[in-house]
């Protein structure tokens, strides 16, 4: 997701002083932010693991859904703790926790990014429409916003999943449904102030259509809040997805999912005997959201260094 286009145009003569666009400046600030770089590295590892999950598991000879009733459980039928054979232990059905974690990364990250992408796209379009056209369009979208924001997210999400049935697609759409509103509100606010600027009038006097003004003139001015909000929303959606799974309304079994793994462990107080069943999925979940949040902070500071400037005063 490195959306930093090269600022130096290919045709720019080498002799002139390099004019640093806002992107180049942001990239320079970001490079100096060690915490954000570490977060980015952690995230890169997690994403690579998610992408190459099948390869990793076949290399280790583990199958996330293979229920090893013979060697995966102890004599009392209880899960095994971490060992050489099962690095992070096994679960109640004798499945390898590490293999499930690796596959769970796919679900968690994939759903987080996909749902955020949809939410941001919808939010941007509706925010643009509301802010640009104002009037009745604005009133309708604003009320829609109010309704979505007035609903208790977890409860309503659970309810929606219950109504539409458990499937990855439903989960993605439900998460998107509850997160577009804030994006739309941010975009709308920005557009309302941007549309009074003279360059919009200039575009109109050139005969630009409304669509062109929205997507060619306004959208480039919204890229920074969009990127910032995107990076901060992904961890929120990862967590909400885990919460749904925890409440038993996530991706249907037996697909490995971090929230679902914790939920399984909670059932019947199993985790009191097998701490690793909560500890590892919980740890990975926190690590992922922490990495995303740190990275999001870093991106925000790099793109919008207002707070930093305030500090230097």
């Amino acid at each position: 997701m490195s959306a930093t286009p090269a600022t130096a145009p290919p045709t720019a003569p080498k002799t002139t002083i390099v004019a640093r666009g806002p992107w180049a400046l942001a990239w320079r600030r970001f490079r100096k932010d060690k915490v954000a770089l570490i977060a980015a590295a952690v995230m890169a590892v997690i994403i690579l693991v998610a992408i190459f999950a099948p390869l990793i598991n076949s290399a280790l000879g583990q199958d996330p859904n293979y229920q090893d009733q013979v060697n995966g459980l102890d004599v009392n039928g209880l899960p095994l703790g971490p060992s050489g054979a099962h690095w992070l232990g096994t679960d109640a059905l004798g499945r390898d926790v590490f293999a499930r974690l690796v596959y769970g990364a796919r679900i968690s990250i994939g759903i987080g990014i996909l749902s955020t992408g949809i939410a941001v796209a919808v939010g941007v379009v509706l925010g643009l429409l509301a802010g640009y056209f104002r009037g009745i369009v604005d009133v309708i979208i604003a009320r829609l916003l109010d309704v979505v924001l007035a609903l208790p997210v977890v409860l309503a999400a659970v309810a929606l999943v219950a109504v539409f049935g458990q499937s990855p697609l439903v989960t993605v759409l439900v998460l998107a449904f509850f997160s577009w509103a804030t994006m739309a509100r941010i975009v709308r606010g920005q557009v309302i102030s941007l549309r009074e600027r003279e360059f919009i009038e200039a575009a109109r006097s050139l005969g630009a259509s409304s669509t062109r003004i929205m997507f060619v003139e306004l959208l480039p001015n919204l890229v920074m809040p969009i990127i910032i909000y995107f990076s901060l929303l992904v961890p929120v959606n990862i967590v909400t997805n885990a919460v749904l799974a925890f409440l038993g309304l996530g991706i249907p079994v037996p697909t490995a999912d971090w929230g679902g793994m914790i939920s399984d462990a909670e059932a019947g107080g199993l985790y009191q005997q097998a701490w690793w069943l909560v500890f590892f999925p919980g740890g990975v979940l926190v690590l992922t959201t922490l990495a995303f949040n740190l990275l999001g902070d870093g991106i925000r500071d790099a793109l919008d260094p207002r707070i930093e400037r305030l500090l230097r005063k």
Partner: peptide, 18 residues
């Protein structure tokens, strides 16, 4: 529109910064 054009007052506000 192509036959009548405008030049604006504010050289900062009238050009899209992005």
């Amino acid at each position: 529109r192509s036959e009548m054009q405008m030049i604006f007052q504010d050289p900062y506000g009238s050009l899209n910064p992005r």
